[in-house]
Amino acid sequence: MMSGGGEDNGEFYLRYYVGHKGKFGHEFLEFEFRPDGKLRYANNSNYKNDTMIRKEMFLTPSVLKECRRIISDSEIMKEDDSNWPEPDRVGRQELEIVMGNEHISFTTSKIGSLVDVQSSKDPEGLRIFYYLVQVGTTIG
């Protein structure tokens, strides 16, 4: 069994945001895991006059534990966004995590592919972020 540091500490919060502003307004996806198990999810686009989707539900401690394990194993908490690409017109990503006595709030641009990762000033750190945060919308 793997066990990363701090994963059994009770305090855990995670928020991820990705979005941009364009001709369909402020299009974004955001979700957060709160320490009591509440998951909130919001997704907005004005494409075809779509309106914001907001959902919330409660997760079991087992799911939160798995999330903590994933974050812990990724070692994202050891990284720093100071050399990551700044958010730009193409978009913005935010990752905020509280785990144990550490609190990160990282911000960067959208990452199109690993090429962007490799050409950045911090390919090692940005790669961890890139693989941790892979968003697809293909599941029906």
Binding site: K55, L59, I70, S74, Y131, V133, I139
Partner: peptide, 18 residues
């Protein structure tokens, strides 16, 4: 191995390649 759980219509993949 490092991927956050997903919820119905959205797949949010968290992973790393360590």
């Amino acid at each position: 191995v490092n991927q956050l759980p997903l919820f119905s219509t959205l797949q949010t993949s968290f992973c790393n390649d360590t």
